[in-house]
Amino acid sequence: MTRLLPFPIVSSCLLALWLLLNQAVTFGHILLGCLVALVGGRILTVLEIPSVRVRRPGVIMRLLARVTVDIVRSNLAVGRIVLGFGRWQRAPGFVEIPLDMRAPYGLASLACIITSTPGTLWVNFDAQRGALTIHVLDLVDEEEWIRTIKDRYERHLLEIFE
């Protein structure tokens, strides 16, 4: 298993990519896609990427749903800010958040979640102190942002990756 498929997630993604690009689920394309997935997975071993074990698929689905809701909500919020509705006074600023997470894939996922949500932006992670700096477009309460990031995202990511 591990020798034939060193990166099962990447390989299955490659297979899905192949089938979607060809827009066909025929036997021949599945065969070709499996070949692409196998070869692609083997090529990745050259890069010596640390392998990852993902647990709790249920938590992943819940996290994805939550991120989707948050993205829609903050899209509306940022749109309102750009168009100039709402409060006139707006205080953008940096927030420092102490993180418990050290797993590199978990941190990468958190960076993607935070940055792709409009309104928050991953700026820097200090690995020694475990302090994450984010930029918030509409900073009202620093404590609330720290609670939001830690409770909504980090707890689930910790469950998934550690």
């Binding site: 829609v72 940022v78 750009v82 949500t117 409009p118 932006l121 930029h135 477009l137």
Partner: peptide, 13 residues
């Protein structure tokens, strides 16, 4: 740093 927030609207929704 504020401007970086803006294009994520187009890339998500």
């Amino acid at each position: 740093y504020e401007r970086v927030h803006a294009p994520t609207l187009g890339t998500t929704l």
